[in-house]
Each structure stands twice: as structure tokens, then as C-alpha cells.
Amino acid sequence: MDGPTLLVGLAGVLATSAPIAVASIGESLAERSGVINLSVNGTILLSAMGSFAVAVTTGSLVLGFILGAIIGAVVALLVAFGSITLRRSQVAVGFVLTLFCRDLSYFLGNPFMGDKGPRLAEHGIPLLQRIPILGTLIFKHDVMTYFSFVLIIVAWWWVYRTRPGLTLRAIGERPEAAFARGARVNLLRYTYTVVGGALVGLAGPMYSLSVKAGWKGTISGLDGLGWIVLAIVIFGAWNPVRVAFGAYLFGLLQWLSVVLQPSLQGIPSQVLQVAPFPLMILTLLFVNVGNAEWVDRILASLPEASRKRVAKILRSLRVVQPRSLGVPFEPD
């Protein structure tokens, strides 16, 4: 593979990973505040279908993307209402919604299957796109891919460099302390869950109107991606930059499996298609195993020098979830 081809390929990775990056960052914000929105898989399917149907009917891409965000926000609002106001299990509400939205997308999307719809066009940024290497890599994309770049930076800055971001981290870690300092914990949790849900909802049209344009029902190839998003959030330790890195890593691996297909003849296609899932389990194993008790015991039996080295590696991989993730907060 020559230089220019490789460059275009990598630029493609940035574009195809954009929906995953946006959805993962949205979910990270919700989980940072203490709410797991488990409906991601169904939300992406429903917003992909809904946006596509609207864009086909009205011919407007903008309406499609707006509807995608609204669908994500509404589903997230249900999760927030069920878990914060009604104190149901977040996992239960999210899981029901994920199945409900999936079936609903297949049911309502049936008449639109295989229709030809509009597709977001690429817009190179004047001047910047002429920069060698970087121009092709970053400045020749569609508008939603630029949005994903900006979102990574803005979300990181918000979480780690602003006062509201500090409050966000506080309500996910120690809501009582944040409450005592005047934070309206449950209102903020509602807000972040809904905003995060809207971002997850945007991932739908980013697929159906751009990266994987069209709606093909059960063979759209979108079912399962939402679960990858949830795993990437853990891998990324709820840090927008690390989460985006996880999304790009996933995109890179998918691209490699396509590029290397000719030399992977011996491996059946079914194995390649589900390769992300065992990979997801292994990744979660790597980032979590450092927390296990038996690992500490084995470490203690190692000689001093190697123990320090292994412990260091494990600690650098390890993620610790927000302390109050999934725990309801009672103001009184």
C-alpha cells in the first residue's frame, strides 16, 4: 500500500469512527453524572431508521439529524425518569428500552428498507485541506466528522477544566458532598443524561445518512454497535479523549480486517464479523483485572523487582468507575 492510499484509508477510519466517538462521549457524560443509559444499542438503531425515513420523505438532511438527536434525548429522558424519579433499576429500564427501540426500528423501518436516500457530502476546508498529510487526514470530511473532532476537545475541556465539569465529576463520585455544596444533583443528572442521549441519538443519522448510508433493516449492520459503545466508555475510563481513542482503535481494527481480508482467506467471514465482541470482553478483562483480589495475592508472591513492574502496568491499564454510577441519590 502506498502513502496516499494509506492516508486516505486512515482519514476514512476517522470518519467511520466518528459516530462511535460521538455516542461514546455522550454516554460518558451521562455515566459521569451517575446514570448508565443502557439503551444505546436500540437508540442508535431507532434514530438511524427515523432520521433516514425523515430525510427520504422530506429530502432534508438537517431535519434527519435533528430528529436523530431528539429520539436519543427522548429515550434518555425515559431512562432518567425511570431511574431518578421513579427509582427503578437503571439496568432494567435501559435494557427494556434497548429491546423496545430495536424492534420498533425494524417495525417502522420496514417500508423504507432499501430506499435510496440523501447522503451527507464531504466539505474540504479551504486552505487547510492543502496542508500535506494533515489536510487529507483531518480537513477533508463531512460536517459531522468535524463535529466529532470539536466534541472530543470541548467535552474534555468541559469535564476537566471548568467549574460545571468539576460539579459533574462530583455528582458521579460523591453526590452527598456535591449536594451539600449546593449542586442540584438530580436535575444535573437529568440534564447530562438527556444531553448525552442526544449525542448517542446523533450517531444514528451519522450512520444512516453518512457512514453507512441507507436503511436495510436487520442487515443494516448496526445491531451490536451500541454495546461496543458502552464497552468503549469503560475502556476510556469516562475520559472523553481516552474514550475517543478507544473509538478510533475500534475503527482502525475494523478497517484493518477489511484491508487485510485477501490475506485472511483462511478465516471465515462470520469470525471476522463478530471479532469485536471477544475483543471487547478481553479489553474489559485487561482494564478490570487489576481490581481483582486474586491478582493482588499473586502480585504479593512475586519477587520485589518484577512485582513493581507488573503492578505498574496493571495500574496504568486499570479503570475505576465513578463511585456513584447506578446509585440513586436521595436529597433528604
Partner: peptide, 19 residues
């Protein structure tokens, strides 16, 4: 033993079994 939440472990294994 691995700290992998059963939701992700189980779900990933669903796709593996189907494949």
C-alpha cells in the same frame, strides 16, 4: 475473577455463540 460485568461478558458471548 476478571471483574468483567456480566452484562458485557454475557452479551459479547451471545454474539460469539451466534457466529
Amino acid at each position: 475473577f476478571g471483574g468483567v460485568n456480566e452484562i458485557f461478558g454475557g452479551l459479547g458471548l451471545n454474539y460469539v455463540a451466534a457466529a
